[in-house]
Structures are given as structure tokens and as C-alpha cells.
Design a protein around this nucleic acid. Structure first.
Lengths: 237, 237
DNA sequence: CAGTGGTCTAGACCACACG
DNA sequence: GTGTGGTCTAGACCACTGA
């Protein structure tokens, strides 16, 4: 038994994952913990790091599986494009699940972000984006009801609010995005089929139309290992 | 005892933190766990979320303290500026600690990132950036030795590689930054005085000179609650 | 139904800060 | 030394999957 179980464990697990063919199941947690001489809690702690890298996938009731090398979704931040567009550009196939469309009234936060009054009618669209069947992103868009109605979404909506608005002919100018990181809440963890507290990359952004009105307030949660976001920065002076 | 200890606990802790004056110590972990009717493990799990938001600070051997509302360091990603410049612009005072300057030879990864051959001489600069005495970022810059030497750093180095190069008169063009999120490794956790596995925002970037040569490969780790990074995105087509 | 991962508990031992 | 947070263990119970 080492003095630094966690670091040894990460190395051991890394080796095990490398040696295991893609798609195959790893031994169960109690079994692995026993084999590697650590407690299940420590094992799970280490396993989380591999899940956020997209190397394994854990499914309650069925097991932990090694994930084959998947191509990450790669995009520059200067240009706003939907995940669908991004995937198409890279020749990948993604799908949408858990689509939920729900009218609601603006609370204080949403009212401020959207430039409306508290109580204004809104439409909230949530969905999970999957690549290779694996959930990789959870998206929540909230729009004023005069921009998007429930009926609109019933037809011609394929998962991207941005693409829907553009195809409809809306004139959109820019998006102001904020970049952060957080641990998954219970809600997001469930949607992405990960553990509560797992590391996520988080964007929250406002989409502006030609009149500088906010037409969409958007929250995005990404499993880090499946995305490469980059930006070219000018040296300032 | 609720069926969802964690969610109750977060709410309870949030209330406790709000009611506690800034700078004051919270009850010890065993004490709090007992008061709130949860195990210490669960309590610590919840407390992590408040630490990454910059609401509390935990110090081994001394306790958990409520942090007064600190102004986040706010910056646009379009322009590359040092944290020092950023802080000055916002009227904040930051400091540098744990400065380490170490020559090393390029391994495969560094050689590729810097456009050099394996074994090339490099200089690696690590340091912790603090705001209000609190570690908020951990920065690792690696440069070719023909760009920066140990002697150079001995004088006139105040914590920012970018500022140092600019003041020296180097012509720098752009930086290509990648944005991600990860859990703190043991090394980074120690430097930032947080727990291993705590959520961090992570940039890794290459800085280019006028000849498109890479002069600096940089890794940055940010405690999310202390930073607001944003970017204006053009709607693509 | 048996077996899996998800959550939580109780308690141990350690490293560190401070008097 | 005493008390703090940092780490790890062993085991319980739950929710879910799939035969």
C-alpha cells in the first residue's frame, strides 16, 4: 500500500483503460477496488477524472465502459455556430435527446439578462446533445415568447435554436459569451449521465439581433473531453 | 433526515455563509456535520462548490473562513493581457508567490507545442497569482532558452511573462488559446490551496512573434469564482 | 431477480497552523 | 499539544439495468 494511493491509482487505472479494448466493460467497482487495494470511494474519485476526459463512460445498473477515441468537437470562439454546424463541418454525427420545451415567466435574473420585465412570457428549451450516442453537452435556451412560440418549435426544430432562427430569416448580429467552469448539479448530471460534481465547461451567453435586443439567453454545459474550444487573442496595448 | 441530504445541505450552508460576516471562521467540519445531520464527507462535498465560487476559503490547520464579496477579474478574450494589466485596469491589487524558474529540456509534447526539437533547452516559469492574499490562478509558462534566460528573470520580472517580453521590446502578434475545464491535480491543488479534484477553468495557449514562431507555451489554471472571461462571437454563415 | 453504479455514513489517520 | 482541514477506508442502502 502506497502513501499516495490516489496517484498510484490514477496510473494503474490509466494502464488498465489503455489495455482494455474500446466498448468493453471494466470490472465492477467493488471488484476493482479490491484488486487495486483501495476503497471504493477512492476508486470512484479517480475514475471521475477519466470520465471528464471522455475515456470511460459509467452507466448505473450496467457498468463502466471504455470509450474508443472519439474526435472532439473543435471550434473557434470568434464565430458562433451551432453544435450541429460544428459537427457537420467535422463530418461527425450528433443527435438530440431529452428535448423539453416549456413556457415560463421571467424571474429577476432572466428578466435582466433578456432586457425584459419580471413576469414577461418566455419559452425555455432544454436538450441533450449526443455524439456517438454519448451525452456530451446540455443546452438551455430561454427566449422571449415574441421571438419563439411553442408552435414554432413543434415543426422544423432539430435541436439548434440558432439554426432555427437563421433558417427562419431572423437577422442576428453577435453573441456575448461568458466562459467558466463548474461542478455538475444534480439536474445537469442526470441529463449528461455523469456524477454530480463532475467537472464541466460552462458558457452563458446573450444573443443579440440587429437592434441590439437580446433574443436568446443561453446556458451550455460541456463535458470537457469532447470539446476543443479555441480563440485567437490579439496582443493588447 | 431528508432523502436528498446534499441538496438540503447546500441550501443550509448557503444560508449559513450568507449570515456569517466576512472573514469569520465557520464551525469545524466535524461540528458542522453534526449540527447539520450529515457525514463529514457529504459536508465537504458541498463545501467544495462554495470554494470554487470564491465564497469560502479553507485552510488546513486553521479552518474554513467566509470570504467577503471580492470583485472578479474581468476580461475579454479577444485581447491578450496579463493578469497584472487586467487587475490594474480594474483597480485591484494582486501579488505573486511561489515563483519558480527552472531550466529543462523539451519533451515530446513541449517540443511540438513550441516548434522545437526534443531535447531543446527551455525555461519554465511557475507562479501563483493572488488577489486579496487569496490564490486565484496558477500559471506555468515555458519558453525556448533563446527567448528567455534565467538571468533575465532575475531582474525586472514581476510575475507576467507577457509584460516582461513587451517591456523588453519584443514584437508579439497573437496568442492561440484553448479553453477547457478540469479537476485540480495534486500539484495545482497545493499551489492554489484548494482540494484535489476541485473545479478549475483551464487555458493552454501558444504565443506567437512577428515571424509566427512560438515564443511561449502557457498553461493557466483559474479558480472560477474569481474570474469573468467573456468573448463577443460573430454569428457565422 | 442479481449485479451494477450512485450516495451517504462513521470513523481512522495524517499534515498543518497556532498558541 | 490541540484542533483544524486533507485523505482514505469499510460498509450500508438506494436506483437502475438487464437477463
Amino acid at each position: 500500500m502506497s502513501n499516495f494511493p490516489f496517484q498510484r491509482l490514477q496510473a494503474d487505472l490509466s494502464g488498465l483503460i489503455d489495455r482494455t479494448p474500446a466498448g468493453q466493460r471494466l470490472p465492477s467497482e467493488p471488484e476493482l477496488a479490491k484488486q487495486l487495494g483501495v476503497s471504493r470511494a477512492t476508486l470512484r474519485d479517480a475514475m471521475r477524472t477519466f470520465e471528464t476526459q471522455g475515456l470511460v463512460r459509467r452507466r448505473q445498473g450496467s457498468g463502466t465502459f471504455v470509450v474508443g477515441k472519439v474526435q472532439a468537437l473543435d471550434s473557434g470562439l470568434e464565430v458562433l455556430e451551432s453544435l450541429e454546424t460544428m459537427a457537420k463541418r467535422l463530418g461527425l454525427v450528433i443527435s438530440v435527446s431529452h428535448l423539453s420545451v416549456e413556457p415560463l415567466a421571467a424571474d429577476e435574473t432572466l428578466a435582466e439578462k433578456l432586457g425584459l420585465e419580471v413576469g414577461a412570457g418566455l419559452l425555455c428549451i432544454r436538450r441533450v446533445i449526443r455524439a456517438d450516442g454519448r451525452p456530451v453537452a446540455y443546452l438551455v435556451d430561454t427566449l422571449p415568447e415574441n421571438v419563439l412560440r411553442v408552435d414554432d418549435v413543434a415543426t422544423d426544430f432539430h435541436g439548434s435554436v440558432l439554426d432555427f432562427l437563421l433558417e427562419r430569416g431572423d437577422i442576428l448580429k453577435t453573441s456575448r459569451a461568458n466562459v467558466s467552469a463548474l461542478g455538475a448539479t444534480a439536474e445537469v448530471a442526470k441529463a449528461l449521465e455523469i456524477q454530480r460534481g463532475d467537472v464541466l465547461l460552462h458558457f452563458y451567453s446573450q444573443l443579440f439581433d440587429e437592434n441590439a435586443k437580446v433574443v436568446d439567453y443561453s446556458l451550455s454545459y460541456f463535458i470537457p473531453g469532447y470539446f476543443h474550444f479555441h480563440v485567437v487573442r490579439r496582443v493588447g496595448g
